[in-house]
């Protein structure tokens, strides 16, 4: 049954998720074309008035572009939350909760689909950002090539940094990557758990779900903040550059582990409420 639930959830979420990815693609292409047309013929001379104006416009364009991408990232998250609320606790919940499936299967199917879409959107955003920056690099190359490092250089730099790492740092980097993937699912579990907690209230359950989510975010931030303080102290004591990088990764890992643990906790909270306290209005 998990496979069937996943299939239908995937089909439903893909409608809006796919649309958001298309919009992201469109914005990226539009941004790249604008960069080419606007700055392609301009010499990147910061001393000239035209050069300064170009630089300002470039920064503004980049900010607008980032804002659009951030909106899409939040858009998928908000859509997933609204959809979870509607299909679990709205009128559609009458269908969802009378299916011959377990609560674990219901929650897992939704978290898996939500997590995968979060990762897809995050990767698309990263790719869009790189392509946008690369289009600047292209125009800079036309000028003098000193303004931006090339697209390929960025990648080469990442791989060279990884190759230069010692075994411990490499292991940390792999853990960071794994945590990035896992926390996508944990964040969705946190969102869904908060929405489910909102159902414990008699009235204004939608509003209470939002409040529960902000409380959840605050708790995650607080735990991460306390962990971050200890890591900052550690960081201040370090002088070796490689240790500083390791320490930054450790700080990130701590933050992600907190999200992961909270995600697991919220999953079981949601399961318990659905199993023992479900009250469809």
């Amino acid at each position: 049954m998990l496979g069937k639930l996943f299939k239908y959830e995937w089909k439903s979420v893909s409608r809006i998720g796919g649309l958001l990815l298309l919009i992201a693609g469109g914005i990226t292409i539009l941004g790249m074309i604008t960069v080419r047309l606007s700055f392609g013929h301009v010499m990147m001379d910061e001393d000239s008035a035209m050069g300064a104006l170009t630089a300002v416009l470039g920064v503004m364009g980049f900010m607008i572009f980032c804002l659009c991408l951030a909106s899409i990232s939040y858009g998928i998250f908000i859509y997933l939350g609204v959809r979870f609320y509607k299909t679990m606790y709205g009128d559609e919940g009458y269908l969802t909760h009378t299916l011959p499936v377990t609560n674990h299967q219901l929650l897992l199917s939704k978290i898996l689909v939500g997590g995968i879409w979060s990762i897809l959107v995050a990767l698309t955003m990263a790719l869009a950002m790189l392509l946008f920056v690369a289009s600047f690099a292209g125009t800079a190359t036309i000028a003098d090539g000193s303004w931006w490092v090339g697209f390929a250089d960025v990648w080469r730099g990442i791989f060279e940094t990884f190759a230069d790492m010692d075994a411990g740092s490499k292991a940390r980097a792999v853990i960071v990557l794994l945590l990035f993937l896992l926390t996508a699912f944990a964040s969705i579990a946190g969102l869904y758990g908060s929405i489910t907690m909102g159902q414990l209230f008699k009235k204004h359950r939608g509003l209470m779900a939002i409040i529960c989510y902000f409380v959840y975010l605050f708790v995650v931030w607080l735990i991460g903040f306390v962990g971050g303080i200890f890591m900052s102290i550690n960081l201040a004591l370090l002088s070796d550059e490689s240790d500083v990088l390791t320490s930054y990764m450790d700080t990130y890992i701590i933050g992600q582990v907190v999200i992961l643990i909270m995600g697991v906790v919220m999953y079981f909270v949601a399961h318990y409420i659905n199993e023992q306290k479900l009250n469809m209005e």
Partner: peptide
């Protein structure tokens, strides 16, 4: 009440619960 009973109970709620899309 659980998945086994839900597999054998056909329920018509007092509202439309089918997705509009």
């Amino acid at each position: 009440i659980g998945p086994e009973t839900k597999a054998r109970v056909a329920y018509l709620p007092d509202r439309n619960c089918l997705p509009e899309y």
